[in-house]
Design a protein around this nucleic acid. Sequence first.
DNA 1: TCTGGGGTCCTAGGACCC
DNA 2: TCTGGGGTCCTAGGACCC
Length: 416
Amino acid sequence: MFALIDCNNFFVSCERVFRPDLEHKPVIVLSSNDGCAIARSNQAKLLGIPMGAPLFEIRHLVKTYNVEVLSCNFELYGDMSLRVMNVLQQQCEKVEVYSIDEAFLQFDKSINWAEEGERLRKHVLQCTGIPTSIGFGPTKTLAKLANLQSKALGIACYIDSTPVHHDTLKNTSVSKIWGIGANLSKSLKQQGIYSAYDLMLADPSWARRNYNVIVERIVRELNGHSCMPLTLIQEAKKSIQITRSFFEHVKDKDVLKQAAARYGFRLSTKLRESSQKTTTLFVYGRNSPFRGETPVFHQRTIVLPEPTNDTAVIIQHAQQAIESFFDPTVAYHKIGIMAVNLRDATQPGAHALFEAPKSAKKPDIDKVMDTLNKRFGLGTVRPLSCGESIEWMNKRDHKTPAYTTNWKTLVQVKAK
DNA sequence: TCTGGGGTCCTAGGACCC
DNA sequence: TCTGGGGTCCTAGGACCC
């Protein structure tokens, strides 16, 4: 028996933990540069604010209904996510952390799912302040569907393929199924498959022939045959990228190089956090897809002489890439740096044989920076090439403090 | 004026090998 | 007329997820 537990309106719920005054109000959390709504409270959803709506398009709603608008605060959400997952891991032996706000759990078949589900929801809420939904089922796909129902009803739910649940499956659009996106659902509907029930009745080999193994697995899972086991051990990441769009377009090469330094710094820090090194960097710059200009996409792939997670090396290559593709006539809207072909940094690679021995006297600057930044907050110490100000070219006008990860912004409680 | 960021998996087709 | 068969590896691109 699988369960999918999912945090309700996660980013909004994180903000509400430290801002109880936001409870019962319409609240939205914006993407970087305060661009679009990426999380909405139930009240905001009821106002008709769609997921991903650009802020400038919903200004009237925000004003009329006094919607609370917040910039995203991923430091907070990441930490709150860890707390939720820790609580779940204390309560259940088999937990797969699936995303920042979701986890699959596996239980014995004989479990009383209604009781266990409510107990877990209450416990998570009590320990972290985060409300959740929980759906149970004999497969991950069915547990996901049960979670949708749980979200709608506000209680733990269960779905399997037996006739008792056929009405529910008939009332669930095929597009709501985990793994069936916009393209597949359009195509399936052309084949006469509109609901989860319709897809459940499809022939798995037909699904494979006409689509692929993923759709075949979904058909089998809808019928209660589990094809996707729980992944208990988190696999090493295969790629890490840092990409950001600019608040206003950039035509200055030095500004782009400064951005490359910032993203390169963040990228190398992330590589060290996950004890990985990269052998290949992919750097790109593009213009805005929304201004009606001819699309521009400059890119460079850099194969490094040896695997590295060294900040200085990564920044140097990223800046060289910018230097080589920069075109002064282009209004750059976004650049990105991606590390692929990652290696375990704790294992000596093929190149280690030829690596120059590190001088014992040379201080490990990256290690010192990591320690200081971890203790005093991101960006406290950084390479000069990243520029002086911390907030830069990325607008965040409504950002809340990093309540749980920065001593300076710790909430103070005073008795009256 | 203004439109996110970060991932994964699968498949087809080409290059290359014996 | 008629030109093998079987395999691996890599890459680009598509689709999906949160």
